[in-house]
């Protein structure tokens, strides 16, 4: 039995909370949330207790694991508090806003003998997992070029923190870090990064980025991120090799499209696509992390992987800001 304390119950926090409530042998011990009304509502929804601070949670509840789903720039502080209290840590991606923070998080967890997992959830999405497995099986031969797209409408959030490049690192740090992590999983380390983005162009809640990656193994990747669409969210992945092309177009792989006739009191007849899964990727990921705590095994995605993905994001940001290609030193 794991007792999990959740810190931050916004969009992703509530997805994690739901995941925990669906698991056997896991108790959601409490929710820490700065917005009292919202925190109380979430606590009621997920049949647990609201706490105003992580300290209050520790005082009143027994927890083994802390799951941190607050905005990126706040991760380090909560990870340090949790690790020093001897709790294992699951922390939302991106790991941190700076490499110094990310390293401090790894260090503090090591020093206190607790596990640290970063929720780079893309590796648990069945379509990306399938792509990874097909690559391992050599389904497209030797890979030459890869293209990814991720994004949609500009996200809304508490404090509008996504709109702060300082706090969120723009979509390059916040969102396409998913693709950076996935591509590292598939193709190994990145040698060189070049990027262009709309950051700093006085646009009201519009952002778009093109990132060019050259991997150590020679693969050329185009990673596109957008918060410039009028609506929706989409993902695409294309991997081209000497013997095949693998194409994933997210919005064309929906098994259900519900389209309703317009009626008074009901808005337009927009078709709402759905792609239901027996277990959502977030629950799969959290179950995997808890199983790793139980067994002591290495996770599918390590904190070091998350650190390396952040390194790519920050190099892309730097390239976009300076106009120069950034060569990454190979570690390990």
């Amino acid at each position: 039995m794991f007792r999990v304390g959740l810190v931050g119950c916004g969009t992703i926090g509530s997805v994690h909370a739901q995941g925990y409530t669906r698991m056997e042998d896991v108790e959601l011990a409490g929710i820490v949330e700065v917005r009292e009304d919202h925190g109380r509502a979430m606590a009621q929804l997920f049949h647990t207790t609201w706490y105003p601070t992580i300290e209050a949670l520790f005082e009143e509840a027994e927890v083994d694991v802390i799951d941190i789903c607050v905005p990126t720039y706040l991760h380090r502080g909560y990870v340090e508090t949790a690790a020093r209290a001897g709790k294992h840590v699951i922390c939302e991606k991106p790991m941190a806003r700076t490499l110094a923070d990310a390293q401090a998080m790894i260090d503090v967890c090591e020093e206190n003998g607790v596990r640290l997992f970063i929720a780079q959830v893309l590796r648990f999405f069945p379509q990306y997992r399938k792509a990874y497995e097909l690559l391992q099986a050599g389904a497209v031969g030797q890979v030459g070029t890869v293209r990814t797209t991720r994004g949609g409408v500009f996200p809304t959030s508490w404090n509008d923190w996504y709109a702060s490049a300082e706090n969120s690192g723009t979509l390059i740090v916040d969102m396409i870090i998913h693709d950076f992590d996935f591509l590292r999983w598939c193709f190994g380390d990145v040698r060189r990064v070049y990027a262009k983005s709309l950051r700093g162009r006085d646009l009201n809640r519009l952002d778009h980025a093109f990132v060019s990656l050259r991997f150590e193994n020679g693969v050329i990747a185009h990673v596109e991120g957008t918060w410039a669409y009028p609506s929706g969210f989409q993902t695409r992945l294309e991997i081209a090799g000497t013997g095949g092309v693998l194409e994933h177009v997210g919005d064309e792989e929906m098994p259900i499209h519900l389209s309703l006739r317009e009626r008074i009191g009901r808005s337009e007849g927009v078709a709402v696509p759905e792609s239901p899964l027996a277990k959502d990727p977030y629950q799969l990921e959290l179950e995997h992390f808890l199983a790793c705590i139980q067994s002591g095994a290495e996770p599918i995605v390590t904190a070091r992987d998350a650190y390396e993905a952040l390194r790519i994001s920050l190099a892309a940001l730097e390239s976009a800001a300076t106009g120069r290609p950034i060569e990454l030193e190979v570690r390990s």
């Binding site: 070029t145 262009k196 983005s197 162009r201 050329i220 185009h222």
Partner: peptide, 26 residues
């Protein structure tokens, strides 16, 4: 047989372009 271009136009528009001969025989 493959490449990836990242462009900026004089008016500030950013762009990318993929000109690769990357389509397999099938």
């Amino acid at each position: 047989d493959c490449g990836l271009l990242t462009l900026e136009f004089a008016n500030g528009v950013i762009a990318s372009h993929d000109p690769s001969w990357s389509r397999c025989a099938s």
